[in-house]
Design a protein around this nucleic acid. Structure first.
Lengths: 243, 243
DNA sequence: CGTCTTCTTGATACGATTCAAGACGGGTGG
DNA sequence: CCACCCGTCTTGAATCGTATCAAGAAGACG
């Protein structure tokens, strides 16, 4: 629509990655269009063969897969600044669908334009690969939570992660952030029943570490919650890691 | 050691990806050294800052993370042809360790050499990104299995996947392959106790779809097993997908 | 032959799912 | 403004699944 206003695209990416000036320039000149997807609608259907990538500008989305049984499993959450289907540049068929958990605003960029930018500046190619690798690390961590953490810690870990991905983490301090996910969606993410998710949430609130009402999550003591949930932010590769 | 004999490196990679002649040439000229890691030893420790990538030539390895409780969770298995730490090119600190599940032979290549090859030929950069993206798809699929599949199907799915990754899948036919994993390791992979893993295995064998004794797995009816376990190979992006 | 690891089994306790139903809250139409 | 409706959250009770504990059997290895 309005490729003459690249600001939001850059602004949202810079929350996540440190961008050099040439990279900023290259990203800023990428043609893109805005797309709006309503709460509960599919951004990308499972099995799609994408020719574009989608950068989430606003809202929350989830990668998800349906089973033959009718069950579904959410594999990752996406927050503004995430490309929801970046790996579509490298694998032809998407193995999951992407669901809008809220009303979402998306910047859509054609594969060929991204590929050209990657060829023109290898730093762009690096950025793309880094984002894919980070997404994989998040999934890996979630496997650990699903396999070896009880539901309360599992959700506690999720709260830590989402707060770190949405905000700049300030350890030891309180955090407040918006987490507009229903308990049914949380259940499909955590691999639990809705009923049990509800009870795990109550238990988590009962620890006093977290207040969670509606879409508002308040972490009263970040460090204690991280310790309780076994959250180690290494895998997020955030900026403090300048080594 | 012997960078004048690149054949095994290429041979093992070509089981997985279709390589063009220039890519073959570039990979063939990469300097590398052979490393041998014994059964049960760590190939890479958790939290390592790698300066090299490791290509598994022979054996089986597992990405894994320890929890404070002493529990551990395996997040992915690696078979010959997999780079076990390719994402180390893009993230500085590895968020997991890599464990040799058998005696392993590994080709070690320095990051700087891989990076040079990526710059010289963007097709190499693409190959690297594709392998990372495929690894992520495998993890995503495992999240689905852990969250929404009962233990029997979970292990059944794993058998399908490993057979597809080790062999060229021939649907509807029987398969035999080596799967040298202990039940304790399987438990840490599936997020189960050892006892329950044992019982799930017995139940899987009782279906008659799979025979599994020691390191030898025989799939009697691939299609039935895939249906039973809900295995859809799309995510592996194997060669049949030439679209 | 003995020792160690891996596999197997039974019994018990706990955790999670399921079913069913009610409470709450936001939005819509009368 | 109120009544209603629908989606979401919450609760209780019964059932099933899974972990845990403990011990024995089967192999592998020296």
């Amino acid at each position: 629509m309005d490729s003459e206003i690249p600001a939001p695209l850059l602004a949202v990416l810079e929350r996540r990655e440190m961008l050099t000036q040439p990279v900023r320039a290259a990203l800023g000149s990428l043609p893109w269009r805005l797309q709006v997807v309503g709460d509960g609608r599919e951004i990308i259907p499972e099995g799609f063969r994408p020719t574009e990538v989608c950068l989430l500008l606003d809202g929350m989305a989830a990668d998800m897969r349906y089973l033959a049984s009718g069950d579904r499993q959410i594999t990752t959450l996406h927050v503004p600044g995430d490309f929801v289907d970046l790996h579509g540049l490298f694998v032809k068929v998407l193995d999951h669908g992407v669901l809008a958990l809220t009303d979402c605003q998306i910047a859509v960029v054609r594969h060929e334009d991204v590929r050209r930018a990657m060829l023109d500046d290898p730093a762009i190619a690096d950025l793309v690969s880094t984002m894919i690798a980070r997404g994989a690390a998040i999934q890996r961590t979630w496997i650990v939570c699903m396999g070896r953490k009880d539901p309360v810690r599992r959700i506690g870990h999720l709260v830590c992660e989402m707060s770190a991905r949405v905000l700049a983490p300030r350890h030891g301090q309180g955090h407040r952030f918006e987490f507009p996910i229903t308990q049914a969606e949380l259940a499909d993410l955590a691999g639990l029943s809705v009923v049990h998710t509800n009870r795990a949430l109550q238990e988590l609130r009962a620890t006093g570490l977290v207040a969670w009402q509606g879409a508002n999550v308040v972490i009263h003591n970040w460090t204690s919650l991280a310790t309780f949930a076994g959250f180690d932010p290494t895998y997020l590769g955030l900026v403090q890691d300048a080594g």
